[in-house]
Write a protein that binds this DNA or RNA. Structure first.
Lengths: 181, 181
DNA sequence: CGCCGGCTGCGGCAATACGTCGCACCCCCG
DNA sequence: CGGGGGTGCGACGTATTGCCGCAGCCGGCG
């Protein structure tokens, strides 16, 4: 809204979750970025080579190649690119790798657009509306459970195993809350 | 390992847990390192300035200054120093910080000497352990807490408020978990 | 067809974690 | 010096888990 349309910084968003992409992409556009989207490393690579973006948001776990190799590519194309890694499968090992490969930040989903922009280090345009309530642990847990449940096609037993929690407990949690914080 | 015996590489070990130090120190010596030990950042700094070590193993959470500042110091003294960070309170946030400050690897305790030595040799590779296991809810919670705690400069009361949880509960969680998943 | 293995919902019970309050101690600031 | 805020920790009643077992339902397979 207060950004000269011709001066928007370019941003490459790569995630295989299309709905997540469209939501985030819109949010980032509203914050003054010229967003291009790719749904896989393979799609993103030519885009990046064509015109290296100034910013990038990359999901790690995607069908096809891992986002890690894309980090390297982007970083080699332009070391000044600010790369935020975003993943639902956060782990210390991949975080370490990502940073060593040149990522600027490593965030665990769910992360909202403000957090991502903040991770870039600064807002390109308007003064940042610092800052919101961090989500409560309950909320976070709920989001996470939903994501994993989804990945397991709604299979509660499998989800419980993956989450290393008891099936009974999962059931109770699921039954109890449509919590909205 | 493939080092001339008369020219053992120097290694600085910093951890405030003295028994842990002595055990690890012995193990590292057996593997061919000339180990010097410090029990705090304050003690380690002059040692490092005196003769910058080729390798370093640093605990993050120590009484006194955080190991993070020591990473910076060591890295500035000699960017070639290979620094492994070792902590019982591992979190993604601190891992990211550590790597950005120049650490070579970041390991969660418990880690044995072999893992540590292996970490020295670890190159920034894109040979990735694509990880297919969602973090447990506990892990997630831990990460989240660490992040918010960090945002509040370690202020436990403020963090508890932000997380909408009781200070007492937060204390207990912080005290109890070296969760390693 | 019966049988087996896996998923689901649920009751119950003991173990554990949590919320809450209180107290002591620190440090900083007016 | 008093007050406000932070920290650590014990205690105790209550809520939440972990973990059993049971019954029902589905889908594959000999």
């Amino acid at each position: 809204m207060n950004q000269p349309a011709n001066e928007q910084p370019s941003l490459l968003l790569v995630d295989d979750d299309t709905t997540f992409c469209s939501v985030l992409s819109r949010a980032l556009q509203k914050r003054g970025f010229a967003v291009s989207v790719a749904y896989s490393v393979e799609d993103a690579t030519p885009l990046a080579q064509d015109s290296p973006p100034e910013y990038a948001v990359i999901d790690l776990k995607m069908g096809g190649a891992s986002g890690l190799v894309l980090i390297r590519t982007l970083h080699e194309l332009d070391p000044a690119t600010r790369i935020v890694v975003l993943t639902g499968y956060a782990s210390i090992a991949t975080a370490v790798e990502a940073i060593k490969l040149g990522a600027t930040q490593y965030l665990a989903k769910p992360a909202n657009a403000d957090e991502i922009v903040a991770a870039f280090g600064h807002l390109p345009s308007d003064a940042l509306p610092l800052n919101v309530q961090p989500p409560s642990v309950e909320r976070l847990e709920w989001e996470h459970i939903q994501r994993v449940l989804n990945e397991n096609q709604g299979n509660i037993s499998a989800t419980a195993r993956a989450l290393n929690m008891h099936r009974r407990t999962l059931q109770r949690k699921l039954g109890k809350r449509p919590v909205s914080d």
